[in-house]
């Protein structure tokens, strides 16, 4: 079990005012955060940029020390027994960093394996296995600089698994990947948790990814935990508000009144925007229920032509903003 208990992290950043004068600014990256990762479970960590997701991962992988609170991995403290913890965890980040470009895929894995102190015979076996699992057997002896983006990403995954970690951290693992590769990666992550009993923590921008993979989801905003739930319940409570955009040439007063009346019965909100050239009007309706057909029926009853209709699924950003607002309110 990996236990994060009341952890906070404050960054001090220098602000250079004049040539020789600097002041310090404190930024709270993570505040009083607690959660747990069980083996075999996939945890999703969501939040906008700067919410503290990456900082949380760096602390769990011992790269950063928390200012307060504690992190223990199978009973080992991440600060005091950092070497022990390092051998239990690993991290995979999106992008093309964290690899030596002049070395081949196999040489990279060999180097990192040695840094983990893995015995030669075990290491050789494991490298062959990993290369096979990520589909890089044919490119194993090609220098990484000749790899494509997807291949580098797959080698990253192999690197992240080289010490056979019990807990794996994935920081935006599918960022910038082509759809089929991302899909393959997702199913692989699922296998790692369900079949190999690894605890996985995943950060992502993509709500679908989180929905598909995670057993539990934590949402961070400005370093604070604002919601913790299963993905199903989250989608049911937070992500159900659709927005409906309808463009019409004009909106007579009478129609608007009728529309407002209708929406009131559904507890929906409406906003009206006039285009700059005054030739069309955009009606934005936010609702938790399926009311598109009733709205359209009302408009056609009033002989209004609908120029365009867009139904928008909620975005993660919107949902978090919404949650954050609710918390403040």
């Amino acid at each position: 079990m990996l236990i994060v208990d009341g952890v906070s992290k404050v960054y001090q950043s220098k602000v250079r005012e004049k040539l020789w004068k600097t002041t310090y600014k404190e930024v709270k990256a993570v505040e009083d955060l607690s959660f747990q990762i069980e083996p075999g479970k996939i945890i999703g960590l969501l939040g906008m940029n700067g919410a503290g997701k990456t900082t949380t991962i760096k602390m769990c992988t011992t790269l950063l020390e928390p200012n307060s609170g504690s992190i223990t991995v199978d009973g080992y403290d991440a600060v005091k027994d950092d070497r022990k913890v390092k051998s239990l965890v690993n991290m995979i980040a999106g992008g093309e960093r964290m690899l030596y470009w002049r070395l081949t895929g196999r040489e990279n894995l060999n180097y990192f394996g040695n840094l983990y102190g893995i015995k030669e015979a075990t290491l050789k076996q494991r490298i062959d296995l990993l290369l096979k699992e990520v589909g890089l057997e044919d490119a194993a002896d090609t220098p990484v600089e000749q790899y494509s983006k997807g291949m580098k990403q797959r080698l990253q995954i192999a690197r992240g698994l080289i010490n056979d970690p019990k807990y794996l951290f994935l920081d935006e693992p599918t960022l910038g990947l082509d759809a089929p590769i991302a899909k393959h990666l997702r199913s692989y992550v699922k296998t790692l948790a369900k079949e190999k009993n690894k605890g996985v923590l995943l950060t992502s921008h993509y709500i679908d990814e989180v929905e598909e993979l995670c057993d539990e989801v934590y949402i961070l905003d400005k370093g604070r935990l604002i919601l913790h739930d299963t993905p199903e319940r989250l989608t049911a409570s937070v992500f159900k508000e659709n927005s409906l955009h309808i463009w019409v040439p004009a909106l007579p007063n009478r129609t608007q009144k009728e529309l407002e009346k209708l929406l009131r019965t559904y507890h929906a909100k409406m906003e009206i925007k006039q285009s700059i050239d005054l030739e069309e009007i955009e009606i934005i309706i936010k609702t938790e229920q399926e009311i598109t057909s009733s709205v359209l029926a009302l408009l056609s009853n009033h002989q209004l032509t609908v120029l365009k209709l867009v139904v928008e699924q909620p975005k993660l950003e919107d949902a978090i903003l919404h949650l954050a607002e609710r918390r403040i309110g």
């Binding site: 022990k84 390092k86 960093r97």
Partner: peptide, 13 residues
């Protein structure tokens, strides 16, 4: 600069 420092620091070497 080449982005491998973290990968190195992750290991207990």
């Amino acid at each position: 600069r080449e982005g491998t420092l973290e990968a190195l620091l992750l290991t207990p070497s």
